[in-house]
């Protein structure tokens, strides 16, 4: 009986996902499109949970639906024609459709033939066999922070680069309507809760679903909420702290990696008795960097004084502030 219930739920989920995906693409209204996309992300998180991938479900809910949704909404707020029709010429549209269909068919064909291949010494089996050596018991964290930690290091660099691009291109957005009292009251409950949950996710990542990316994104959402409620709060931000938070994740990661190279010849080759604590140290630093990066991305540009702070101390360079 319960099996039928699950099947019904899964089919509903698939149907809803397809519908929302179609609606997201089909609508010509940016605001609606983004809203559909956020709903799509939340349902996708459920789908991951059904596929027994809770780490991905968490990441999808927090980053895919939450933070990306906020970023997209902030981006279209700039756009004067957010409500208006935003339509590709029909020839281009058909070319895009044709390409997508071709791509999907090609991939489907490949996967269909590939299903027979799955045998032998696959990576996933190796990972599960080696998890006890990694210093953590959650296999996802073992891959992200130990076996393939170098990928994660470069991913952090990608996040930093994206933020550098944001800081390069624009000054910060300033036009905010002050929040209503009800949001202010709610925030005094919500923000501490988010901070605690974020800390919990970070800690629990060692043996259960969670980890730096999810924790960082939650922390960022707390910062974004604060920013929405109190637009002026960020003007008092200490820019040196901001710089420090942005780079601390990669800096700690690289330092640990190089230190381990001196001790154990391989970059990021943790000494096995220390690997648990080293992973936690790296993840904590990464959480701060990810949170500040996402919060800055939401600010949409550099805050006042980001570029001219040094010219006040040196008399020689008086570079005009860029408009």
């Amino acid at each position: 009986m319960t099996e039928w219930l699950w099947l019904f739920l899964d089919l509903t989920l698939i149907l809803l996902l397809l519908t929302l995906a179609w609606l997201t693409c089909a609508t010509h209204n940016n605001q609606k499109g983004v809203t559909y996309f956020i709903a799509f992300g939340l349902l996708l998180a459920l789908a991951w949970a059904r596929l027994k991938a809770p780490d991905l479900a968490l990441a999808e809910a927090v980053i895919g639906a939450g933070i990306s949704g906020a970023l997209l909404l902030a981006a279209i707020k700039h756009d004067d024609d957010a409500q208006s029709v935003n339509k590709l010429p029909s020839i281009k549209l058909w070319m895009v459709n044709l390409l997508t269909v071709a791509l999907a068919t090609l991939m489907g064909w490949g996967v269909w033939h590939g299903l027979e291949l799955s045998d032998g010494n696959r990576l996933a089996d190796q990972v599960l066999a080696q998890v006890p050596e990694s210093g953590v018991t959650n296999p996802v964290t073992a891959v992200l922070l130990n076996f393939r930690a170098y990928d994660t290091l470069l991913e952090l660099a990608v996040v930093l680069t994206a933020v550098l691009a944001v800081l390069t291109l624009n000054p910060m957005r300033k036009t905010y309507v002050p929040a209503e009292p009800i949001l202010q009251t709610m925030l005094s409950w919500l923000v501490p809760l988010l901070v605690v949950t974020s800390g919990y996710l970070l800690w629990v990542g060692a043996h259960a679903p969670g980890g730096a990316f999810q924790a960082g994104a939650l922390l960022a959402s707390a910062l974004i909420l604060l920013q929405l409620a109190q637009p002026t709060a960020y003007q008092a931000i200490n820019l040196n702290w901001m710089r420090f938070l942005l780079i601390v994740g990669i800096a700690v990661f690289v330092s640990v990696g190089l230190l381990m190279m001196f001790l154990n010849t391989a970059f990021l080759g943790y000494s096995s008795s220390w690997s648990g604590i080293l992973i936690l140290v790296i993840e904590t630093a990464a959480t701060f960097s990810i949170a500040s990066a996402l919060a800055i991305a939401y600010m949409g540009g550099r805050p006042d004084g980001w570029e001219t702070f040094e010219t006040s101390t040196s008399s020689g360079h008086q570079g005009g502030k860029h408009s």
Binding site: Q126, N146, F147, A266
Partner: peptide, 9 residues
């Protein structure tokens, strides 16, 4: 990297 044999690492 990480002293894991290539394939796992």
């Amino acid at each position: 990297l990480g002293n894991w044999n290539a394939g796992l690492g």
